[in-house]
Design a protein around this nucleic acid. Structure first.
Lengths: 127, 127
DNA sequence: GTGTTCCGAATACAGATGTCATCGATCTGA
DNA sequence: TCAGATCGATGACATCTGTATTCGGAACAC
């Protein structure tokens, strides 16, 4: 199972559109973007081409054009990015980082329960 | 209270050395780096200059040379980087990201308890 | 005082990134 | 069959990043 490649900021925007809905044509991705981000179709095409080259998306021909789809789940990419951050930030930063994320995130009751269960399991493992 | 600027991967390495020990000269930072990262002194100087320009470090002259020190705490920079990631990854990714961090991080019992308390407080707030 | 050493400043340069425009092929409708 | 409308491919180009060198001056060593 290959690892997700590193995805740049602009590329995340395109991936996000594809995770929300796929397969999609370049035009479809462009249409799906928040219009406040005034990208031309050309920009979207370039990003798709780069994502294709680095293996983050796949495409199949459908008639005259291509339909794109993510090659990795959002979760896998998020994890890879998270790992990158952890490595950069260093051990000393883990706990504050977690606390920060907890406070900032909008998770609801279900997720809170899930995380609590996770903590219980963690505690058990680590003794 | 200014926000920490965005810090690139190579720059993190230099910041890490400064957070560990400061103020330090460019030479001192270079000496402090893991030697497996075979950077020349020149590379370190360039990175320090860039960090200075973007306001991530400050320096004071000490005789012939400069002594550098971080302009922001590690925590502040880590948080800024974490926020960046949250924004990029999108709402859907928050919970998996948290779960991943919990599993991957090496936090100990005390931190686990702290996080549990944080979850309790969160639940209360959100109802 | 002259050579040597160390420093910061400036410059270099390839590759990554953000953003677009152009081109040639193809499909579409009159 | 001919004018548009679309596509993907390719090129463009400024900025950012990673990595390193060169230069002119200050300090030190004799």
């Amino acid at each position: 199972m290959p690892k997700p490649p590193r995805i740049t900021e602009a590329e995340w925007v395109v991936m996000d559109a594809l995770w929300r809905d796929h397969p999609q044509s370049a035009q479809g991705v462009h249409d799906a973007l928040d219009p406040r981000r005034e990208w031309t179709l050309g920009t979207v095409k370039t990003l798709l081409a780069r994502l294709l080259k680095k293996g983050a998306v796949r495409h199949d021909k459908e008639g005259k054009r291509f339909l794109y789809r993510p090659a990795f789940t959002r979760q896998a990419c998020v994890r890879a990015a998270g790992k990158d951050l952890l490595v950069r930030a260093g051990r000393d930063a883990e706990s504050p980082l977690l606390a920060y994320f907890l406070k900032e995130s909008r998770i609801g009751k279900d997720e809170i329960d899930e995380l609590r269960a996770l903590l219980d399991r963690l505690e058990e493992e680590r003794g």
